[in-house]
Every structure is written in structure tokens, then in C-alpha cells.
């Protein structure tokens, strides 16, 4: 028996932005061309009905991956296979039968809802543009059902977005996203603009939706604790590359890559009052001029000459994948892990 094909398979995905000056300016100032490799060869798969989270600090390329998947930006290279269709060359909305299956929830519920539209119209818009409910009355019934499904009331459809709190607006975004009965949702930091007590409501809603509708999620976040709650798989990104991809429980129990370890060590944690340990130094380098070899080597306690010159491969290792020479060579065993308490 072969395993069923994953809903989404991304391989060798790249996105390069050209930051060069115009040709004439380059000629006069003698400057060269400059590129940012925002996404620099990313591979992952997401099995149906599961959640993969991408985590990393600002500038690591996680949101660019989301835009590439949704067709909001064209990949420079690589392939995006969704449910048997290749999407790498297509734009948002094309082909409709496939794109209807993919929807997105954005970070800022204040900016992602049209302030001049009533909520019912906002939620009905995807059904209208994909033609899933051509009859207006049926569409309205569906809007009412969706509103109640996400924990609002049917009467809320007549209101405008400004009449709702941040958490309620994010419920509206979710109702809009699931209105075309998609299989796959890209959620780009959906709770980071919300207050903590409201964040829990939205995370619980997203998990129960997944159970009831069999949804597949790509979840993007910088918050490891949130990611721990929602994910089956976690991918850690650093300067455009995935450095570690592993099942969620594995990555928290046995992080492999030194950057994953650094992230886990530095998360402020309410059970970690007044840690006085040595703080890892350094910051994420400028993505225009990333370090050669392994991008992480200037901050890595295990870096050697090979790390400084040669890009590590993304190697499979007991059900996970890690991009690190030290892990590959077994140099990492003695590396100290975080002490609890």
C-alpha cells in the first residue's frame, strides 16, 4: 500500500527580488546588480488534514512562501503541486477550480476587511467571484450559516467591520475564507494582532474547523508557543532557507539545528522567571548580503571552516530534515540544551 499523495508538495521553491539601481545609475556609479533571495530553495509537503507551520524571525521569508503559494507573487524557480495540479506558473485565481480550494487568512483583521462593505457582502464575495452559489438567496443563507458557524450571529451580516472587536473581525475573515469550501488555508500570523485572551478563542476555532471540515493548514507565525498548539509539522526558516523540518512534538523535545535551539532558548516563558543564563549574541544578518556557506554560521557556536564556505544539504534524519553540517557530522551531541526551571 502506498501512502496517499500529500495535498501540497513544494520543491525547490525560490523567489528572488531584484534591488538593483536602474541600468544608467549602475553605469554611472559603477555599482553592481543586487538581489535578495527571499526564498532560497524551500522543500516541504503537507499531508491532507494536517497543519504545517513555518516559523522564523522577520525577514526569513515565511510570508513570501505564503504569497507564492497563493499566487500573489510569482516564484523565480521551483514547483508547487497542489492536489495534482502544478501552480508555479499561474497567478491568483487561476485555474479557478483549483484556486477555489485555497484561501488565506491575513494577520491584520483591521486592514483585511473592506470598511465600506457590510459583513454579509464581505463573506459572500469569494462565493460570487468563484460562482459557487449563483443564486443570491442561497448565497445569503450560506452567509448566515457561516456567521453562526464561526461563533457570530446571522444578524451580524448587516453590520460594518468597525462594529466588531479584533477577535470578531478575525472570525469574519475565517468565515470569508471557508465560504468557497476550500481544502487548504494559508494563515499568515492570524492571531498576532489579537490580545492573548482572544487569541485562544481563535486558535480553538481554527482547530475545531480543521476537525469538522478536514482542512489542511499552512500556518505562519513567529510565536513558537502558538505553533506548538496548532501544528503537526514545523518548519524553521532562517534567511530564506528551511533549516529544520520535523514533527511538532519532536522539534520541541529534540531540536536539532543550532538555530532551532537558539529560538527555543530565547522565547520568554512564563515558567522561566528570571533566567540569568548567558544570552545568545547577534542578530539576523542583512538578507541582501547573507553570510556565505551556512547563513547561520556567524551566530553558531559550532561553526567551523566547512560551515563558513559550504551550504549544508537539507538531509533526512530519523523522520525529520535538517540543514546543518554539525548535525550531519555528529558534532552537535555535546551542545548544551536548555535547562527547565
Amino acid at each position: 500500500m502506498t501512502a496517499p499523495e500529500p495535498l501540497l508538495t513544494v520543491s525547490g521553491l525560490k523567489k528572488t527580488f531584484d534591488l538593483s539601481q536602474p541600468f544608467l545609475n549602475r553605469l554611472l556609479s559603477g555599482g553592481g546588480r543586487r538581489f535578495v533571495h527571499a526564498v532560497d530553495g524551500v522543500d516541504f509537503t503537507i499531508p491532507r488534514g494536517t497543519t504545517l507551520s513555518l516559523v522564523g524571525e522577520s525577514g526569513c521569508g515565511k510570508s513570501t512562501v505564503a504569497k507564492l503559494l497563493m499566487g500573489l507573487s510569482r516564484p523565480t524557480a521551483g514547483s508547487i503541486r497542489f492536489d495534482g495540479h502544478e501552480l508555479a506558473g499561474t497567478v491568483a485565481g487561476e485555474p479557478p477550480a483549483v484556486r477555489r480550494q485555497m484561501q488565506m487568512i491575513f494577520q491584520d483583521p483591521y486592514a483585511s476587511l473592506n470598511p465600506r462593505w457590510r459583513v454579509a457582502r464581505i463573506i459572500a464575495e469569494p462565493m460570487k467571484s468563484f460562482g459557487t452559489h449563483p443564486d443570491p438567496a442561497a448565497r445569503r443563507r450560506e452567509v448566515d450559516r457561516l456567521l453562526e458557524f464561526v461563533g457570530l450571529s446571522a444578524a451580524d451580516g448587516e453590520k460594518f467591520p468597525h462594529e466588531f472587536s479584533g477577535g470578531q473581525r478575525q472570525r469574519i475573515s475565517i468565515a470569508r475564507a471557508i465560504s468557497t469550501k476550500p481544502e487548504f488555508l494559508v494563515c499568515d500570523e492570524p492571531t498576532s494582532a489579537l490580545d492573548v485572551s482572544v487569541q485562544a478563542q481563535i486558535l480553538n476555532l481554527m482547530r475545531s474547523l480543521q476537525r469538522e471540515l478536514g482542512l489542511t493548514y499552512l500556518f505562519i507565525s513567529h510565536d513558537l508557543a502558538v505553533v506548538n498548539y496548532i501544528s503537526d509539522w514545523i518548519g524553521v526558516m532562517y534567511l530564506g532557507r528551511l533549516v529544520e523540518l520535523a514533527p511538532a512534538d519532536r522539534i520541541f523535545a529534540e531540536p536539532q539545528h543550532p538555530y532551532t535551539r537558539l529560538l527555543l532558548e530565547t522565547v520568554p516563558d512564563i515558567s522561566m522567571a528570571h533566567r540569568d543564563q548567558e544570552r545568545p549574541a547577534g542578530e539576523v544578518p542583512n538578507p541582501i548580503t547573507p553570510p556565505r556557506g551556512c547563513h547561520f554560521h556567524p551566530r553558531c557556536p559550532l561553526a567551523n571552516d566547512r560551515c563558513r564556505s559550504e551550504v549544508p544539504e537539507f538531509l533526512a534524519r530519523d523522520g525529520a530534515r535538517v540543514r546543518c553540517h554539525a548535525v550531519e557530522e555528529g558534532r552537535i551531541a555535546s551542545f548544551p540544551m536548555r535547562k527547565a526551571g
Binding site: 472587536s165 479584533g166 477577535g167 470578531q168 490580545d195 492573548v196 485572551s197 482572544v198 487569541q199 485562544a200 478563542q201 486558535l203 480553538n204 482547530r207 510565536d223 513558537l224 508557543a225 502558538v226 506548538n228 498548539y229 520541541f252 527555543l264 522565547v267 516563558d269 512564563i270 515558567s271
Partner: peptide
Amino acid sequence: SIPRIGPRPEVLPQIEGAM
């Protein structure tokens, strides 16, 4: 309601409503 690193609950305790 704050998610934590460690064993995860099936449902995160939540406070209903908003401030």
C-alpha cells in the same frame, strides 16, 4: 489561555467575549 511550549492540551482554555 497562553499557549506554552510543552505538552499541548486538546482545547486551549479560553475566556469568552472581549474586554
